[in-house]
Nucleic acid binder design. Structure first.
Lengths: 236, 236
DNA sequence: CGCCAGATTGATACACATCAATTCTCGTGG
DNA sequence: CCACGAGAATTGATGTGTATCAATCTGGCG
């Protein structure tokens, strides 16, 4: 387990498609994060949005698509920290540089907000700060839940928790037999859950055998009796 | 691994020793968290400060001692989320109730700040919000680092990272042969690092054999050649 | 001095990692 | 439209790091 497991290198530089600014947009899904003046940018699948260590000049909000935030050790071990999707924010930091990299899992469209403009806006309008605060609090809480997953849950429980989380975020938890999207690869899932691809694959296969889930195509999964999954995911 | 590992139940109710309020205190260690009007409270070792699910009415700042923040599953598996010490804050949440419990590892003295007073203060003085923001950002970054530890590091690496973290927080990293405090039990360490007591114990013993560390008494450890430890802890 | 919770150490089990083929998927070009 | 190729996913065989079970040891305290 010690040595490198799935080295993931990425030497592609982001390509930014500058679009006309669309300041103070209306409200689409996600949290009630305040609306700042923003620029639209797009990234192709697997392109890097920023690298760990880059100057943390901007904050992002996902308009569409899925992003992955990664930390990588010197010897190539990778841990995915979050999968922001439509409505989610990322790239906020109290430091000068990002402490993880951000990559496009699917083609993505983002709102890019300069750090300075946020700081100025918050300065002049304290109410805005609350939105940022709420966002950070939520992310911290999710992080703490993920601690429990990474530190104390079995492979099956991690997968179940992951699927339930996805279903919830896609509003498909209550749909019986609802089909959820799995936009990311097995490697991404493994690196998010602290497992290997093989274990992820085997566990998903076992769940299919047991009738917990079924799949038509790769990249989507149907939940059969989601209660059983929630049971496994157990939460607190 | 599935079933309960080290069930930890705590049915003690907090005992609060109300002291004269000491509002707007001077600056002692830790981050530059703004000073709000606060009440001093003390807790004996192993007393619970609040339970997960309790009404999140207050925010805390550690004056002295060490606290542990815990999440526990139904079947008794526990994950410690952080060990706040002097200067650190905890208990902030965007929700109505706490999403983890807080317990005194050692006897502790805390500053207790009502949630409302923070919100009012931030409302009237936007500058204060920045301090809270910085605190949350820092905690989120630590959380992401801990992801890497829980998801991708070996037992030896986790212990090394833990000791280096402690040494750094106690400003003993550069002291050659500096002695650091280990105020928490092996169980606490295990539940923080996602291991078992036995593995923690074995790993520490091995490190002693290898001359990485040495110990005079339980509860304190001397680092012999901290570079080797930092090497193991590898970070990003 | 003897008790007892916590820590250490030992023997063994097992969940997941690792190594190694196969088999799918899906984009591409004939 | 189908054959082809390549990367991704699955499946199998085996290894190993850590959990589990079980004593034994240690150190603080009445």
């Amino acid at each position: 387990m010690n040595a490198m497991m799935h080295p993931t290198t990425d030497v592609m530089r982001p390509i930014e498609l500058r679009r006309p600014a669309a300041p103070l947009r209306g409200s689409d899904g996600g949290t009630d994060f305040p609306k700042f003046a923003s620029t639209r940018v797009s990234f192709l699948k697997d392109r890097t949005i920023y690298f760990e260590g880059d100057d943390a000049s901007h904050h992002y909000r996902v308009v569409s698509g899925t992003v992955r935030l990664c930390k990588v050790t010197e010897d190539g071990r990778r841990q995915i920290v979050a999968f922001p999707t439509a409505g989610d924010c990322f790239g906020w930091t109290g430091w000068d540089s990002y402490c993880h990299s951000a990559e496009a899992v699917t083609p993505v469209v983002l709102e890019k907000i300069s750090r300075r403009s946020i700081e100025e806006a918050v300065q002049s309008n304290p109410g805005l700060g609350r939105g940022v605060l709420a966002m950070l609090s939520d992310q911290l809480m999710s992080a703490h839940n993920h601690f429990l997953l990474l530190g104390r849950m079995t492979a099956a429980e991690r997968i179940a928790a992951f699927l339930v989380e996805l279903a919830r975020r896609q509003d498909r938890l209550d749909d019986e037999g609802g089909t959820i999207d799995l936009p990311m690869s097995r490697i991404d899932i493994a690196d998010y859950l602290g497992l290997t691809i093989e274990t992820v694959s085997r566990t998903i296969s076992a769940m299919k055998r047991d009738g917990l889930i079924s799949a038509t195509a790769l990249g989507s999964i149907r939940l059969g009796r989601s209660e059983a999954l929630e049971q496994l995911a157990l939460a607190a």
